[in-house]
Deep mutational scan, measured.
Amino acid sequence: EHKIILYENPNFTGKKMEIIDDDVPSFHAHGYQEKVSSVRVQSGTWVGYQYPGYRGLQYLLEKGDYKDSSDFGAPHPQVQSVRR
């Protein structure tokens, strides 16, 4: 199983989107239009992308907690697509 939770604010606060065993080419299409400032990967390895359609900067997200976007190497809290 692959499970990831994306949070609007640092330290796992604010609006969140939970994804289980699915690739998401556009967070906006899924109704999530917030920034991504923290991430909790509960299982599996994911790649987050700066822009929709798996474009832009890529961020490797392995199991663990990323309490701020800088923890996974993002210069800005901008992640708009993700895949396993």
Rank of each mutant, 00 (worst) to 15 (best):
K15P: 05
Q33N: 06
H76R: 09
E1A: 04
A74E: 15
P10A: 07
L61A: 01
Q42F: 06
V41H: 03
N9D: 06
W46Y: 01
K3A: 04
E62H: 07
P10K: 11
P10F: 02
V41M: 00
P77I: 10
Q78I: 08
A29N: 12
K15H: 12
K67G: 13
K63L: 13
Y59H: 00
S37Q: 12
K63Q: 11
L6A: 05
R84W: 05
S43F: 05
D22Y: 01
L61W: 07
L6W: 02
Q78F: 10
S70T: 14
D22C: 08
M17E: 15
V36S: 07
S37C: 14
G44T: 01
Q33K: 12
E18K: 03
L60F: 07
I5R: 00
K15F: 01
F12L: 10
T45A: 08
Q42C: 10
Q58G: 07
L61S: 02
K35R: 11
I19P: 05
V41T: 01
R40M: 05
S43I: 03
L61Y: 03
K35N: 03
A29Q: 12
V79I: 14
D65E: 12
Y54L: 03
Q33C: 13
Q78S: 12
H30N: 10
P77D: 11
D22H: 15
Q50L: 02
W46L: 02
D68A: 13
S37P: 09
S26M: 07
Y49W: 14
V24G: 02
V24T: 05
D23T: 01
H76C: 14
L61F: 13
P25Q: 04
Y51N: 13
G44K: 03
D68K: 14
D22A: 11
Y59T: 03
V24W: 06
H30I: 12
I4W: 02
V39Q: 02
V24E: 08
D65Y: 01
D23E: 02
Q33D: 12
K3P: 02
Y32Q: 13
E8G: 08
I20T: 05
K3Y: 02
L60G: 04
G64R: 04
D68C: 09
H2L: 02
W46K: 01
L57E: 15
P10L: 09
H76W: 12
S26R: 06
K67Q: 11
I4S: 01
L60S: 09
S38K: 00
P25R: 08
H76N: 14
L61P: 01
F27M: 11
P10G: 05
D23K: 09
G53C: 15
K35Y: 02
L60T: 13
W46I: 02
T45H: 09
K15W: 02
V39E: 04
G31H: 11
R40G: 03
P25M: 03
N9R: 12
V79G: 05
G53W: 06
Y59S: 05
L57F: 12
T45G: 06
G44F: 03
Y59R: 03
K3L: 04
D71A: 13
K35T: 10
H28R: 14
V47C: 06
R84V: 04
V39A: 05
K16C: 07
E34G: 13
K63Y: 09
K63V: 12
W46V: 08
E1L: 08
D65A: 11
Q50F: 01
E8K: 05
Y32K: 14
G44P: 01
H28M: 14
P52Y: 00
I5Y: 15
Y66M: 03
S70N: 14
V36D: 00
S69R: 09
N9L: 09
R84H: 03
D65L: 06
Y7A: 00
Y54R: 02
D71V: 10
Q78W: 07
F12M: 08
G48N: 06
L6S: 05
V47H: 09
S26C: 08
D68R: 12
L6E: 02
L60E: 15
P10H: 04
E18Y: 05
L6I: 13
K16L: 07
G48F: 08
Y54M: 09
L57N: 11
E62V: 11
Y7G: 04
G31T: 05
H28Q: 10
Q33W: 12
H28I: 07
V47L: 09
R84L: 09
P25T: 02
Q50G: 02
D21H: 03
L60C: 13
K35M: 05
Q78V: 14
D68Q: 12
P10W: 03
T13S: 02
Y59V: 11
H76S: 13
G44W: 00
S69T: 13
E34L: 14
D71I: 08
I4M: 15
P77V: 12
Q50E: 08
V47W: 07
M17Y: 08
L61V: 03
G64S: 00
W46P: 03
D68Y: 09
E34I: 14
D21A: 01
Y32G: 13
F27C: 09
S26L: 07
D71K: 15
K16W: 04
G64Q: 07
